[in-house]
């Protein structure tokens, strides 16, 4: 059963049977790569994620949802992390205590938020449900 064939409550609530939903493996892989990009192997994990997104253009909606969300948020998240951190360092200089207070606090908070959101996404993918990252995730396709 794919998203199109699902009943309205099933679409709204996501997949509930014990069988994996179509595209669930890919959805889980997308969220795992998103987290790996943040925690273990940056850049390389994103490269694989991006490749998966491009390769599986006609994957089931669940997989497309998670691939699109994680790719967009990896890009935006990376940008938000890098640009502001660089700006704080450039403006404050390396020899000022407050630069480090701001940079470490900023990086830790934003990075942790992205990780927590990725964990929510992974839990949703494992349950066969779609997910939208708060604030910077693209709108869900209806």
């Amino acid at each position: 059963m794919n998203e199109q064939n699902a009943t309205a409550p099933q679409r709204a609530q996501g997949h509930r049977s014990d069988q994996p939903a179509p595209g669930q493996d890919l959805a889980v892989a997308a969220e795992s790569l998103f987290l790996a990009n943040l925690l273990l192997v940056p850049v390389l994990s994103f490269a694989v994620l991006f490749w998966l997104w491009r390769k599986h253009a006609d994957a089931p909606p669940l997989a497309r949802n998670h691939l699109k969300q994680t790719c967009y948020v990896s890009l935006w998240g990376g940008l938000i992390l890098a640009v502001f951190t660089a700006a704080f360092l450039a403006l404050g200089g390396l020899q000022w205590a407050w630069t480090w207070v701001l940079v470490i606090m900023y990086f830790t908070c934003v990075h942790s938020t992205l990780v927590i959101c990725g964990m929510f996404g992974l839990a949703r993918a494992m349950a066969g449900k779609p997910f939208r990252f708060p604030l910077i995730g693209p709108k869900l396709e209806t």
């Binding site: 927590i116 839990a123 949703r124 494992m126 349950a127």
Partner: peptide, 14 residues
């Protein structure tokens, strides 16, 4: 702790 969080959310989702 990572596993615990995914576990809790996964169970509630299911």
């Amino acid at each position: 702790f990572f596993a615990m969080t995914v576990f809790a959310f996964n169970m509630v989702n299911r």
